[in-house]
Design a protein around this nucleic acid. Sequence first.
DNA 1: TGGTTGATACTATAGACAGCATGTC
DNA 2: CTATAGTATCAACCA
Length: 760
Amino acid sequence: MPVRGLDEAPAPLGSLGLEPEVEAILAAQGITSLYPPQAEALPHILAGRNLLLSCPTASGKSLVAYLALLRAVRAGRTGLYLVPLRALGQEKAEELGAFEPLGVRIGLSIGDFDLPAEKLEKLDLLVATSEKADGLLRRGSPWLDRLGCVVVDEVHLLRDPERGPTLEVTITRLRQRHPELQLVALSATVGNAAELGEWLDARRVESEFRPVPLRQGVYHGGRILFSDLSTRALAPPGDAMPRLVRTVIEEGGQALVFVNTRKGSEQAAQLLTGTVRPLLTREERAGAAAAAAELEGLGEEETEGSRRLAELLPHGVAFHNASLTNPERRVVERAFRDRRLKVLAATPTLAAGINLPARRVIVRDTTRYDDRLGMNSPISAGEVQQMCGRAGRPRFDSTGEAVLIARSPEEEERYLDQYLSAPPEEVVSRLAAEPALRMHLLALVASGDVTNEAELERFFAATFYGQTLPMSELVAKVRTVREYLTRHGFLVPTEELRATPFGRLTSDLYLDPVSALLLREAIEKAPLGVSPFSLLAALAQTPDLPPFYLRRGDLPHLLERFAEEQQELLIQPGASDGVTEELELFLAGLKTAESLEQWTDEVPVLELTRALGIGAGDLRSKVEDAQWLLFGLSRIAATFRPALRRTVDELALRVQYGVRTELLDLVRLRGIGRVRGRALYAAGYADRESLRAAPLARVAAALSSTALAETVLRELRPPRPGSARASTGAPSVPPVQDPPAPTKGGRDRRRPSLEEYSDS
DNA sequence: TGGTTGATACTATAGACAGCATGTC
DNA sequence: CTATAGTATCAACCA
């Protein structure tokens, strides 16, 4: 049963004009009535009108969106759900899965989990990141032809300087392509909803409603001062954090602690073990220990994060940040959701990401290091609100508490004013950023949607930027960018706007033109026997592969390597005296290339990450980036340097699996990654062919697992010809993915129970 | 001489999208 | 511009 606000009456479901089948599915999730904002939004949805729904997080916005999408499907159209984060996409796709009994076919299109075109064609609903949707538009995907409804989740992210422009362009393009489209935009509370609603030509529903009421306050000197000026004393003993944590656990709740560094998240977790452990019941202790055991069952190569988590989890405490691997994060998230964990100390990963609320949110830090400034600076009120918004767990908490920790009376007052009473932020367009314009101008032209100056103007006039800001700055930037694209061979130098083949390729590959240019230069220049390192170093000079952070201590070694390899480098740094900022950036690229080189040399993850001072999650994401760029490089090589294409493809595979060349054959086996592949190789099995006749016992010995050996051999020796694949998943053998291919992090595709749906 | 203590300097700092082709209990 | 915690370095000091 959804918990509702105390003073607002829910609207019973029966009278709202929903189809009985839909109502039945909702009822099965325990949804028998709608929250006030949902009820207010529904008539607009059912009338096919555009809608901007701005409410706090977790106030049931998604449900409204789902109903809009269903309506489109019922009318024989398709629906698109745009999300800003992959993890969010998975969450939404799983939730939408509840409607599959209605015959609705749902798919997910995100970077590391995509569908082949034939399957896409059959889908009624697609959940996609805005970049993926942009990609569909660029390629003129026929799936879009029947589009009837688009949901834009977290539309306030239009103000994100990096990815906001993509969202803005995607929305504008979708609307131009489908004038009859129903647009449903979901947003946090924003200062200028009216302006945004006007651009979207949408009715507005704004509300502060929360299913679980939220109290926000500042902790100082043993008590919380709430924004309504009431106070609450917390029983001693203990410093701020332990006390806030202890008291909420004693009342049966959980705590989410937000900190500003990764290290801080680990330390906070460590610090709180002493507070939490004594408060656990025997069952809880067992559950927490089981979570620790899950980490081992992940089948991942050993990581630092896994070790530290394993130490913390039995105490009912964990940390969560981007240095963790995706499967590791999932274990932590699940344990917290199951309430086996009492406290989670997290960096902002969790604030913007998936829905993981707790009764009490503790905001420990209100500043964060800013690289450009070289020091800490205060985080925005919006960001603090976002963290606070995670307080209050439906079904388990009657109210949520968000508490900032102040270190002085002055700070207490400042937090109250600056953060808790701050007006919501305004959404502004960031479209005039040159890197964004480079990509999108090229895409507009390459897709043929814009063929001349007039159409270009019409397009930009239709954007949020065009609707809200003076066009002069944008026009000037567009001119600069157009010149750049023409000068470097992306656009044909004529009056009409037309892309060259290279321009189209760049757009299709979703590359930043600057990257495409560097890659082209590198591959054209490369000798036949070009080394993997040289190719990786070229990738790492590209804006699409941001380098690892450069530490002082890295400098001597990198300068040495630079001197060694200078002749071989395909992209050279600009000439300069001494170690300038520019050279440092270049060296950071070398460091990144070197880490990828070691990955492909089978250096153990644990060793590699320690040497670089990074997390396994960072390595994974860098590997993913590199893999994607190598695919692009391969396509560019196909045009400009066919002789090197195979070299690039081989490197791409090596990067994908993290192996030397000789393991490339073995690693194609299901369940065999870099570690097991090497073990088989060392046992004398150099390829799949040599394994085929191998005795089970020896393979089992090499893999230290009979079950796994059976699976592997079964794949090689299909019992019935032609059904090799079908037979690999015999019920007696659990699927073991180790180590998983880097991009596929072994995500959890289990169908969630209905109970889990009703959580959001 | 060897070891401890303490002042001082140094170091590092959140997050995460994209191509393509495919698959389980 | 509005930082801070952890660690490495080194000199002063003590037994």
